[in-house]
Design a protein around this nucleic acid. Structure first.
Lengths: 336, 336
DNA sequence: CTGTTAGCGCGTTCAC
DNA sequence: GTGAACGCGCTAACAG
């Protein structure tokens, strides 16, 4: 059994410095309110006693821990990996902490994680696209501030919604492919009951229409966001009598799966088929995917601003973030 | 400002049930010591008051939180993604929690995370291959139990070391490639100052020697574990007058980078070059990499057993875990 | 500017 | 089988 008292406490420091615990606390949290001399004494004592502040005690007192929970469907999705990085970076530098709740589309896991979040008095929950149900077990007890990224708003729950400009994303891609003389354009969607999938699909229909191009049911597939779903799309499209010449995938992860499966079938990208994705993650992948970049650093910053001042939560807020086109190597121009 | 009191406490439950807080506590933690009748009353009150236990208070009292910290170099490495999954699964089901500390080879981040771990009284730190320095800022104050995965033991710090059977891994791969008639075998190592890299390299030399094959300096590269390092190896090997016909990469991530870069250069895997990796992650990647599988579920289980009973920490323990061969599609047989 | 004190929510010990 | 009281480490209010 490890001894209960493993670290020196604020009291040890106080004794060593010959001051009261309150003074130590002030020297740490509000240095201005303490005289130069005592502050130095205290800091010295902190060093000497190897003091490590106990954030449990702080959290207990304040009723809230400095922990942010990120719910994701799949931590291997490069978009979330990047989001995790950016969030961690900004949170850590402000003494906050991120826990990852990978739900894998399981209601049970989601509920377990949520119980955990409550028990540690999470200061904020970030909920991303792809959860099992529209209305998660998220109750309003405790009023944990909620941030939705790429997710349909929960009714009755205050939240901040952050979404990429899905419409612009699709607009850019459709125009790009049409300019490359593609007419038979397929669409690999995420699950259609997810907000961003739906939005992207609707925009796809609209902009195809603007170019006078039909959206054939045969050219639209909707499964999951996993790489395997992108791979399955290859099998499907190439079972058609007339496969599309270009594909818009609803995420880079889907595009990756598509490309790898295509290669394995001897289908050349972009010679035989053009494909582009959405996310614009700057990771190592060959060929570099033509895509739409989301500014993930900005998402992280937006999240953090909200955490700092959740007073904004009084009304459901929605922020739409700009996106930009990223040229890759996965599309080619068709002869007219 | 969010009200301080956001959740109902054990006292609220006690009042509602008409018992004392101690009884509620017992009803939760030691149901056997409470009469059937009162226990039911208490459980009912818990439900009705939407009680969420405050793990801060528990942790404060016990001097330790149920949080495990995992230090990794790079969360996009599929090996760590898998490890994160398995750890999270087993920990969550036991009321523990995992935080990810991605150090990105930065001393500052590492130190920041370590401070954080101390402040939340982490019950255990898992340290994986690839940290910046041999001797990290990890001090012994607080005696946080330490688990090293694929990492050289720290001097003066008690720890449990978990390593795959690197020797067997390399043995299997060298024998496999030699049986496919390869003689010019290249080796893409991780940074050579990491324990597992060094071990794998030394085994490589030994087993090549057993087959009477020379290990030429030209055929060994050592950079990082990133995909980009695998990619760079392609450029390097194919700048040689006589490139190797087969490659052993020290990780699947390196192999991935190698394969993608090779494709981009028109080098066909496995027709033009055979390659195999180590890790055996079962993720979607084409072509499926011939590799060595580590039993990550077993690693997670070993970690958890240790957390349950860190008394084993009295002496530095070392556990070597078995590995197995996984046939993929990235190697071909040469004519004799 | 600094010390004293109370209490955040919980688990435990010692009474009953 | 159950309740009262204490303390874990910290901070905010109030006194000095």
């Amino acid at each position: 059994m490890i001894s209960k008292k493993r670290f020196s406490s604020i009291r040890d420091v106080a004794n060593l410095a010959g001051v009261s615990t309150a003074t130590v606390s002030r020297a740490i949290n509000a240095p201005d309110t303490v005289s130069e001399a005592t502050r130095k004494k205290v800091l010295k004592a902190i060093k000497e006693s190897n003091y490590a502040p106990n954030s449990m005690a702080t959290a207990l007192f304040s009723g809230m821990s400095k922990t942010v929970a990120l719910f994701v469907l799949d931590i291997s999705n490069p978009f979330y990996i990047s989001l995790m990085r950016h969030l961690n970076q900004i949170l850590l530098s402000h003494g906050h902490n991120l826990i990852i709740c990978e739900t894998e589309n399981s209601f049970e896991k989601e509920a377990q994680y949520y119980e955990y979040c409550k028990s540690i008095r999470t200061c904020c929950i970030i909920y991303t696209a792809g959860m099992t149900r529209k209305n998660f077990a998220l109750d309003t007890h405790g009023n944990i501030p909620l941030i939705l990224i790429d997710h349909e708003p929960f009714e009755d729950v205050q939240s901040l919604s952050i979404n990429p400009d899905n419409d612009k994303a699709i607009h850019l891609l459709v125009d790009y492919l049409v300019n490359l003389n593609h007419k038979k354009i397929g669409f690999v969607s995420g699950p259609i009951d997810f907000l961003s999938s739906k939005a992207r699909y609707e925009s796809f229909c609209r902009y195809m229409g603007q170019h006078g191009l039909p959206v054939e049911n045969d050219y639209v597939v909707s499964r999951s966001f996993a790489e395997s779903a992108g791979a399955a799309a290859v099998d499907y499209f190439y079972s058609l009598p007339s496969p599309p010449t270009a594909i818009i995938a609803a995420s880079d992860q889907l595009a990756r799966g598509f490309i790898m499966r295509a290669h394995s079938m001897g289908i050349n990208i972009p010679q035989d088929c053009s494909i582009c994705g959405i996310d614009g993650i700057d990771s190592y992948f060959y060929p570099k995917i033509t895509s739409i970049r989301q500014d993930i650093a900005l998402i992280a910053q937006t999240v953090f601003d909200f955490i700092q001042d959740p007073a904004q939560t009084s009304l459901p807020l929605t922020k739409t973030l700009d996106v930009s086109f990223v040229l890759g190597q996965t599309c080619r121009k068709l002869p007219e």
